[in-house]
Simulated scan of single mutants.
Amino acid sequence: MFTTDRPFSSFAVPDVGEAVAFYRDTLGLDVTVYDEMGGGFTIALPGGGHVFVYPKEDHEPAVFTILNFSVDDVDAAVDDLNARGVTTKIYSDPDYGTDEKGISRGFEGGPDIAWFRDPAGNVIAVGEMAPQMMGG
């Protein structure tokens, strides 16, 4: 029977080792690697839930945001990510109204947000998300 009590998200990467290093070592997330299931891994999200990341040799990066991190201060978060070697200026000003740090400040009524890419080219966001955007 279909139930909705254990949902999770997933996305692909071409190089699991590189992705594990990025999500675990660069971003500081709790990662569990599996030898079974084709060698993927899970990311334990601090607020609860998990994301399964699986290998796909012919992976093409998502053209949309696959993972969002809500923060109280996007400027501080961007500074921290930049210090870790993460590039946050991935869009030019006309695309999303981003500033020199790569932060879009309330573009079209949205939150202050910045985007960056994982080693596979997938888009990740960090921003001052409204509680309703996170189900709260």
Rank of each mutant, 00 (worst) to 15 (best):
M1N: 14
M1K: 12
T3P: 00
T3W: 04
T4H: 08
P7Y: 05
S9Q: 11
S9D: 03
S10A: 13
F11T: 06
A12S: 15
V13S: 08
V13I: 14
V13H: 03
V16D: 13
G17A: 09
E18N: 11
A19Q: 09
A19F: 08
F22C: 11
F22Y: 13
Y23L: 12
R24D: 10
R24I: 10
T26L: 12
D30F: 03
D30E: 13
V31N: 05
T32L: 10
Y34L: 01
Y34F: 12
Y34H: 12
D35R: 11
M37V: 10
M37R: 07
M37G: 01
M37C: 10
G38I: 07
G38W: 11
G40Y: 04
F41N: 07
F41L: 05
T42E: 02
I43L: 08
G48H: 10
G49S: 10
F52N: 10
Y54V: 01
P55K: 03
K56S: 04
E57N: 02
D58T: 13
H59C: 01
H59L: 04
E60Y: 03
P61K: 04
A62C: 04
A62F: 07
F64P: 00
I66V: 14
I66P: 00
I66L: 06
N68E: 03
F69N: 12
S70F: 04
D72A: 15
D72H: 02
V74T: 11
V74Y: 08
D75C: 05
A76F: 12
L81E: 04
L81C: 10
N82R: 15
R84Y: 14
R84W: 11
R84Q: 15
R84I: 14
V86L: 13
T87A: 15
T87Q: 12
T87I: 07
T88C: 15
K89P: 04
I90H: 09
D93V: 00
P94L: 05
P94A: 06
D95K: 06
D95F: 10
Y96N: 06
Y96F: 14
T98R: 01
D99L: 07
E100H: 09
I103D: 01
R105W: 08
G106W: 00
F107Q: 05
E108R: 04
E108C: 02
E108F: 04
G109C: 06
G109E: 00
D112L: 01
D118C: 09
D118V: 03
P119I: 09
P119V: 13
G121A: 07
N122W: 04
V126P: 08
G127L: 05
M129H: 13
Q132M: 15
G136M: 14
